[in-house]
Write a protein that binds this DNA or RNA. Structure first.
Lengths: 189, 189
DNA sequence: CGGCTAGTTCTGTAAGGAGAGAAATTACTA
DNA sequence: TAGTAATTTCTCTCCTTACAGAACTAGCCG
């Protein structure tokens, strides 16, 4: 049997805490606990892990791990890593936090906002031809549509900016304002 | 009995569609369907509505409406509006989309990221004093902590910028980059 | 070509959440 | 102060989802 040499039966406290918190933070947004925990564990691991090790360290069923790993792969938050002389599959996490954020944002956008935008377009079209609908409602649907479209376009542009530069922008915070040619200084509307 | 004069028994198609979509879009993120539907209905309404009207138009139970309205109030996405000669409470939605976005963002941040940041601080402290934890894991926890803290600070700064100006920034998109004094032009990793 | 081992899919169960309807409370009116 | 309208809270049910364990499939060794 292939004993892992530097195997730890119980995780260091800080790691366990991290995994636990990450786990139920995941629960609070769309991802289920197991998926988030596995992700956390891999994120902190200094080497790729296989399904058995994960199951052992987290105490969750193989079936569950299999499905969770599959989900993490579709989010591109982890990747398969072949290990010499071991036919089992190993996995490691994306450790670049910016990548991680954009992957998550991308995934959520695809699942949540894109369909919403599409639906909104339909509503907008519908509203234009419907005589029963009030002017107000029509206006609100339009406003929402424009807003969402603008934000969507913005997001699309932002993720094309190289991370380091974007990070610079973020670190600058509101100082960016001081470099812009502002038409007016008093806060309009 | 207080008949509503301009009462519509069934909603215009576009409105119904909007409500339906908004409803299950809500379901896809943290908010439950009823809450999101009520919000959508109020957003499109040209006048404040009371609980009865809402129940009638959406076909959901009064108890449910009561709870949902309470939740929407805590999110500050709707407000109570007194109506002359009617002792029932009426509600109207925030229609400024920027307000709406910031309120939602604020709420989610409070519930989801603030606790996570707090937990992360604890983990970081723990990791520093734990001899069992690997250098790698400690580094990753630190990296995560710094990243989250930076983003948090950025968010905090952004919401203090007047909406109109922020909107301008967003409409500019990546053009903002051209106004900045960049140290280097080639994309740094 | 049997026996293993890794991995996946299937199935049953248990927990959580949403929401309906009843009961209780509060506020207003006569 | 009784009576009624409006709203909230409580409780019960249904539905969804997470997850464990079992059964199944596929690759690899002798």
């Amino acid at each position: 049997m292939t004993e892992i040499t530097d195997r730890e039966d119980s995780l260091p406290v800080a790691v366990r805490q991290f995994v636990l918190h990450w786990g139920d933070m995941g629960g609070q947004w769309g991802v289920n606990r197991s998926v988030a925990q596995i992700h956390a564990l891999l994120y902190l691991s200094d080497r790729p892990l296989n399904a058995d090790e994960i199951g052992e360290k987290l105490g969750i069923a193989r079936s569950n791990i299999s499905n969770s790993l599959k989900e993490l792969l579709t989010w591109k938050l982890i990747r398969r890593v072949p290990v010499m002389g071991d036919r089992r599959e190993h996995f490691e996490a994306e450790t670049d936090l910016w990548q991680m954020l954009t992957r998550i944002a991308q995934g959520r956008k695809e699942r949540e906002v894109d369909p919403a935008v599409a639906a909104l377009k339909v509503c907008k079209a519908e509203a234009e031809s419907d005589p029963r609908i009030s002017k107000v409602a029509r206006g609100r649907i339009d406003a929402m549509h424009d807003f969402v479209t603008t934000m969507d376009a913005w997001h699309q542009e932002m993720i094309t900016i190289p991370p380091a530069r974007l990070m610079m922008l973020i670190k600058m915070g509101r100082k960016v304002l001081s470099f812009l040619p502002l038409g007016r200084t008093k806060t309009p509307q």
